[in-house]
């Protein structure tokens, strides 16, 4: 069953022309979909439409989960610098009217799930980039979302940290199996994270191709070294180059 979908959506920005579309996208329950494409192809715009942070100029956005059941992890951790990791993670619940002690308790659980139980009292400035991103992930998970939108969450992290976090996201995903849409410009990350990769073409963003990768999520160990991984990555790289109008 489709959890969220975009049907023939188009987004025009006044003075800058068409940014997206017409574009279709649908994510099923328990599925992880990756959106890859060149910079400025409208991947993040598509995500904002699904989050309800932006309205399409034309077309329809459908989303079954309500506001409280949809979470977004942005490119930067977006933490409140004056609040502890725990208070940051508790924010969605507290804004929703959950009592403070209960919200903080659930936030502590969420921090433990992302491996940060020791850093609950730390302020964002005391955390490394990877830890701050984990707090951001804990904040997204604290509401037990049915739809999780990830907007280039690893963009600012180093290679080791992003691989660790990618594997951890899969592990966390198996607990509740939310529908996930993952925006990235990194081909290998897309192949690793998602069972379906949508390659977008640039301005205005449209679907160029869809590539599926077979092994069930979470990935087997050493998935990155398998032939399947390499061939999917190569197909996507080629499509990406073609979508930008140059031969691979």
């Amino acid at each position: 069953m489709s959890v969220a979908s975009l049907a023939a959506v188009e987004v025009d920005y006044p003075g800058r022309g068409k940014a997206l579309g017409p574009f279709d996208l649908s994510v099923e329950e328990g599925e992880i979909v990756a959106l890859v494409g060149p910079s400025g192809c409208g991947k993040s715009t598509a995500l904002r439409l699904l989050a309800g942070l932006e309205q399409p100029t034309r077309g329809t956005v459908t989303r079954t989960p309500g506001r409280g059941e949809t979470s977004v992890v942005f490119q930067s951790p977006n933490l409140m610098p004056w609040a502890s990791a725990q208070a940051n993670a508790a924010l969605p619940l507290e804004l929703d009217g959950v009592a403070k002690t209960e919200a903080r308790r659930q936030a502590a659980d969420a921090l433990a799930r992302v491996g940060l139980s020791g850093a609950a009292a730390a302020k964002p400035a005391q955390l490394s980039g990877g830890m701050a991103m984990r707090v951001s992930l804990a904040r997204a998970l604290v509401t037990q979302p049915r739809l999780l939108l990830l907007d280039e969450p690893f963009a600012a992290l180093d290679e080791i940290t992003r691989r660790d976090l990618a594997a951890d996201i899969h592990t966390l995903w198996t607990e509740t199996r939310p529908a996930v849409i993952f925006v990235t410009h990194n081909v290998e990350e897309a192949v690793y994270m998602a069972s379906r990769v949508v390659v977008m073409s640039a301005s205005p963003g449209r679907t160029f191709s869809v590539v599926r990768t077979d092994p069930a999520l979470p990935r087997p160990p050493h998935f990155r070294t398998t032939l399947e991984f390499r061939s999917a990555a190569e197909t996507i790289s080629r499509d990406l180059a073609l979508s930008m109008g140059c031969a691979a």
Binding site: V72, N78, L95, D96
Partner: peptide
């Protein structure tokens, strides 16, 4: 921070919540 504003939009913060939890700090 406009990104934090967006986050508060996402979680449907009321005007007062936005004032107390975001703008004043």
């Amino acid at each position: 921070d406009p990104d934090l504003e967006r986050l508060f939009d996402l979680y449907g913060a009321t005007r007062w919540q936005r004032l107390w939890r975001l703008r004043i700090p």
